[in-house]
């Protein structure tokens, strides 16, 4: 059974790019367009392995989503990876402190993203 990854980004094109790269690598992909929808999908998919999320999004940003889900013991083991155009050290530190496992600055190279996802999956 394929391991399931949630991709959260307000750009449908980025969701397609990320989803395409990871599904070709054997992962099952589900999508959400913002942090609030992301939290709903996480609740509805208890078998999720990983979340790859943007930071700046409407309704709820990726850092708020990360902090909310890590505050819930049910999701504390979920692997979260940030994929964003932001590179501000304070934001990276906030994500790290909240429990994120990685940070990629857009634009990303598909093979590096897949490699990082596989590495994190193998450590789960």
């Amino acid at each position: 059974m394929a391991q399931k990854i949630l991709v959260v980004d307000d750009s449908v094109t980025i969701r397609q790019q990320v989803g395409s790269a990871l599904s070709q690598a054997g992962f099952e992909i589900i999508e959400a367009a913002d942090g609030q929808e992301g939290l709903n999908k996480i609740t509805a998919n208890p078998d999720l392995l990983m979340v790859i999320t943007d930071v700046n999004m409407p309704h709820m940003n990726g850092l708020e989503m990360l902090e909310k889900l890590k505050a819930n013991p049910k999701h504390s083991k979920l692997i979260v990876f940030m994929l964003t155009t932001e590179g501000q050290p304070e934001l990276i530190e906030r994500a790290k402190k909240a429990g994120a496992k990685g940070w990629i600055v857009k634009p990303f190279k598909a093979e590096l993203l897949v490699s990082a996802a596989k590495k994190l999956a193998s450590m789960a």
Binding site: G87, G102, I104, P107
Partner: peptide
């Protein structure tokens, strides 16, 4: 001095 990662860079924690 700035520790910000560059475009495409991956940081694993």
């Amino acid at each position: 001095q700035n520790d910000a990662p560059s475009e495409g860079e991956i940081l694993l924690f």
